[in-house]
Amino acid sequence: MFIATLVSDQEAASGLELLNTPFMINALIAGTLIALASGAIGYFVLLRDLPFATHAVAHIGFPGATLAVLLGVSAVFGLIAACTIGGLAIGAMGHRARNREVVTGTVLAFATGLGILFNSLGSAQTNLLTNLLFGNILAITTDQVVVFAVIVAIVLAVLALIGRKLLFASVDPDVAAARGLNTRALSAVFLVAMSLIIAISVTVVGVLLIFALLVTPAATAIRLTAKPTLVVALASVIALVSVWGGLIVATYQPWPPSFVITTIACVFWVLLPQLARLRGPVAAPQIATQTASS
């Protein structure tokens, strides 16, 4: 019904027919692409203790998007550019920076303020603001789907290549460096990949809800299994179910897809580990609690 209200000339469209409309197909493809990438990205975000950085990079993308619109360019390209710069800046700051959280939080607030400024200098579209902050998966165009597909393909190919090295450098940086891995280069490559996926995920769930799509599924999966490849696969499946569930429910209910997507992801996060515990003792590792508190 949420979707039906958007389709003015299709008053009588039923839920199932809506699944066949072009914007719905775009939404399903875009959502699937992002879910596929979010499993691996989310896992390394947890291992590298970057959940807050994820949130911050999305916020840094916000002024990029509104500035792009102000300049007459596509908001998605603004997002991609600003997120990548933000991700690299956070990487340059390094893990050892003592007040990393304070610096990140301050930049995040400043970026958000800038974003509102650029928006008000332009057409001050409330539509654009709402879409950026809360996402609008139904507004994704076919051109954007093509861009997303290219980005996700590149990111997954790179992660497939460096996955094992990145895992070593993430969980055991000292020994990885001693064994000759270039941990700085690996970190930079990961931050760019992460920032690209954040940029395109903003179009689905928005700056404010990014956590639920990019981090929560991996945080759920990591409590269920310890095998790296299984965590990644499971996290992607959880993200996929959340996105598809959000789209399908939105055809029947007057709820925005972003709400349903984040709700499904959060319900999984709460319930799945409980269910697994009923089945057999699965110890929750420290990393799960770390994530919950950040």
Binding site: A160, L161, R164, K165, F168, D172, V175, R179, P228
Partner: peptide, 10 residues
């Protein structure tokens, strides 16, 4: 990882 962590792949 001490052995395989320096190799390409997953």
């Amino acid at each position: 990882l001490g052995l395989a962590g320096t190799r390409w792949g997953v």
